[in-house]
Write a protein that binds this DNA or RNA. Structure first.
Length: 277
DNA sequence: CATCAGGCGAGAC
DNA sequence: GTCTCGCCTGAT
């Protein structure tokens, strides 16, 4: 068990901000002082992590050693998000409000293949249904695992498993027209036409170029993968929410030059703020 | 019943 | 190069 106290770390907000579709709320209880305590489950990197959250205190169900070697990096704990928020132009009232509203959001370092498939599925789709699709994919094509604590979960299916899936079967996961995109992406990786290991080493521009080769991956999805898997925090995905906000709040353009290298992290505050309000 | 979800590819021009 | 249109599905 590892305890972390951090103002800028909320599992609830990370979960709701829709960057991680497999993070699930396991239970929600209230203690005698009326404080809400939430418990989350997260299958990632061949493990099943459980996190309890109460206020700004978090409890991780893993030994310190595992926390230091895996989760510290996964949750980007070396980064000071308070500093990042403090750098926001005080005159930018909208961005200041958005960051204050979603101050517990962090940009995770998630698995590359999982993000490619997840964000292909995310297009023209809502978060609830994306979760269902991903969970169904894992249940159907992933490998059933039992953690040391006895939690049952499914691994995210690799490219091979998805490439072998029959089209009708994949279609049965309710991916709709996106199922052929997923199938094509899996084939591309299996045939070695895209090398995921090499993709991880590329800079932002190089990674974008490579990701855009996938059938069903456009600028928006490629930017999400860059941000949520490769941690290119300058990547700035523009979806319907962001597009709307840019038009309404930034008619003269978003000040990218002021936030060079981390505009993507700020994008996540804006997205979450608009999504929830 | 129409519209919309964290878009994208294809085809027209 | 830029624009429009159709698309699976489920929630509202």
């Amino acid at each position: 068990m590892v305890t972390v106290e951090n103002r800028y770390f909320s599992m609830k907000q990370i979960s709701e901000s829709g960057q991680c579709f497999r993070l699930e709320l396991l239970e929600e209880t209230e203690d005698k002082d009326g404080r809400v305590k939430r418990k989350y489950g997260l299958p990632a990197f061949g493990r099943y992590l459980k996190v309890s959250e109460c206020g700004s205190r978090l409890y991780f169900s893993c030994p310190q050693e595992e926390f230091d070697s895996i989760w510290k990096d996964y949750f980007d704990l070396e980064e000071d998000y308070g500093k990042l928020i403090a750098s926001i132009d005080p005159a930018d009232v909208y961005l200041s409000r958005a960051a204050a509203f979603g101050s517990g959001i962090r940009i995770l370092r998630q698995d590359l293949w999982e993000m490619i498939v997840s964000f292909i599925i995310s297009q023209q789709n809502n978060i609830r249904r994306i979760r269902r699709c991903v969970s169904e994919l894992c249940r159907k094509y992933g490998v059933r695992q039992v953690s040391e604590e006895g939690d049952i979960y499914y691994s995210f299916p690799g490219p091979e498993a998805l490439a072998e899936a029959s089209p009708e079967d994949l279609y049965g996961c309710n991916l709709g027209y996106r199922s052929r995109y997923v199938k094509a992406a899996a084939g591309l990786v299996c045939r070695g036409e895209v090398d995921l290991a090499a993709l991880r080493l590329l800079d932002y521009e190089g990674a974008m170029k490579e990701l855009l080769r996938f059938y069903g991956v456009g600028t928006k999805v490629a930017n999400c993968v860059c941000l949520f898997a490769l941690h290119h925090t300058g990547a700035f995905p523009v979806d319907t929410h962001i597009s709307k906000v840019l038009g309404q709040q930034y008619p003269d353009g978003f000040p990218f030059e002021r936030y060079t290298g981390y505009a993507g992290s700020l994008q996540q505050y804006i997205f979450y703020y608009d999504l929830m309000n």
